[in-house]
């Protein structure tokens, strides 16, 4: 009796599966986040022993959401179908959006998020992309800060500068070096994919005005003496 060969047929287009799965996962994560937040907001902190655990879960779910968003965006940019859509954005409103998604969470971790901006300040950028960059920076800061994060915006010679600073130990030397050329420093072999940094540098570069591109900068020091991430947009 002949035994049928169990050859795996060639997989038609793995890229399509990957992209549609990422899209699907984003839907699930969106539900997860909304449910967790509902639980957290309605919970009585003192009589809910799992509270901190839920906060942590929510934090991780948001990280997954942000990473999936970055992956999808990079994929679409590679295919030249990312709908880059810069608009005039009120920085005050933009920061309110960011605060609404992060303030409670940070507070529950004992971290103070301080926001500083001029209410009349506006910027010209793709809101979804820049939200991704700032959310990524806030996430990093929340993992390394001691107790305080400072989010600020100002215009410097027509260039909009968005800063995320913290009072932790600051960036290690290796990352400061790497950030000088985040786009070239992706190293899949060593496992240092630096997705967040790569994404941020690419997004900055997409924002151009009369031949000048945006950029990111990592430093130590700043207002709070810790890490200081700056995104400049022309």
């Amino acid at each position: 009796m002949k035994v049928a060969k169990s050859d795996i047929p060639p997989i038609p287009d793995i890229e399509i599966f990957l992209v549609s799965s990422v899209h699907d996962m984003k839907n699930s994560v969106a539900i997860l986040i909304s449910r967790l937040e509902k639980t957290l907001i309605s919970a009585d902190k003192d009589n809910f022993p799992e509270y901190d655990g839920f906060v942590q879960m929510n934090h991780e779910a948001k990280r997954i959401n942000d990473k999936l968003m970055q992956l999808l965006t990079l994929y679409k940019m590679g295919q030249k179908v990312y709908p880059f859509d810069p608009q005039y954005v009120s920085i005050d409103e933009f920061f309110q959006t960011i605060a609404s998604q992060n303030m409670d969470l940070l507070a529950s971790q004992g971290i103070k998020l301080e926001i500083q901006t001029d209410p009349k300040l506006s910027g010209y950028f793709d809101e979804v992309l820049i939200y991704g960059v700032i959310a990524n920076a806030l996430n990093n800061a929340s993992r390394h800060t001691l107790s305080h994060i400072y989010l600020s915006a100002k215009k410097n010679n027509g260039v909009l500068e968005l800063c995320v600073e913290d009072n932790g130990k600051g960036f290690p030397e290796a990352i400061l070096q790497e950030s000088v050329d985040a786009i070239r420093n992706v190293d899949f072999q060593s496992g240092n994919t630096g997705l967040g940094l790569y994404f941020s540098a690419l997004v900055a570069r997409l924002h151009r005005k009369h031949g000048c591109s945006g950029e990111i900068k990592l430093e130590n020091g700043g207002h709070l003496g810790g890490g200081c991430f700056t995104l400049s947009l022309p």
């Binding site: 899209h23 984003k26 839907n27 994560v29 969106a30 539900i31 986040i33 909304s34 959401n65 999936l68 968003m69 999808l72 965006t73 679409k76 179908v81 990312y82 709908p83 859509d85 979804v128």
Partner: peptide
């Protein structure tokens, strides 16, 4: 997520806004 289709409809059939979940 933000898809190109979302910003490409004919003007008279554009929604007032897009919101990305969550």
């Amino acid at each position: 997520d933000k898809t190109a289709e979302a910003v490409t409809g004919a003007a008279q059939y554009q929604p007032d806004s897009y919101l990305i979940k969550p």
